[in-house]
């Protein structure tokens, strides 16, 4: 753990904002620029900032790699699951019109779920990448 007071105080103020902003980007992506890809990366960047300042061990305690290894395929499964769901409801693969009574409601729901899947996969993969690189002992 580094003992830079300024860094630590500023990071403590910034990290909640970054995470909140990531959630905004994720769920407001229908109306403003944003979506799963961006939100996932921003959320991961917030956690990486925490790891850079408060140490990798503490971050791994809070967000264990095992959880991320489950989340990473889970996002893909959510995405593909929406597709299979529309198949079961009688439509084509990823044809969201069948998810609700109104076609546009179905589209809204489908896009929401799909973006959630993308966000979960991107977030957990980016953080896993960082864990893999940072957890490696320097030199050898």
């Amino acid at each position: 753990m580094l003992h830079h007071t300024v860094l630590r105080v500023v990071a403590k103020l910034l990290i909640p904002m970054i995470l909140l902003f990531a959630l905004y980007v994720q769920f407001h992506g229908d109306y403003s620029p944003g979506g799963g890809f961006q939100a996932g990366v921003i959320f991961a960047a917030g956690i990486i900032l925490y790891a850079l300042i408060f140490g990798l061990e503490d971050t791994m305690d809070a967000l264990p790699p095992g959880v991320l290894k489950i989340l990473s395929p889970l996002g893909v499964l959510i995405y593909a699951g929406v597709g299979v769901d529309t198949l079961l409801l009688g439509g084509n693969f990823l044809d969201y019109n069948f998810l609700a009574h109104e076609p546009t409601h179905g589209q809204h729901l489908g896009i929401f779920l799909v973006e959630l899947g993308v966000g979960v996969t991107v977030f957990s993969t980016m953080l896993l990448l960082y864990y893999a690189f940072a957890g490696r002992e320097p030199g050898q």
Partner: peptide, 17 residues
């Protein structure tokens, strides 16, 4: 068809799902 204003999101998640 989609009912959301951000065209990039509609194309990304729906038309080109």
């Amino acid at each position: 068809e989609i009912g959301i204003p951000n065209i990039v999101t509609s194309v990304l998640a729906s038309y080109r799902g």
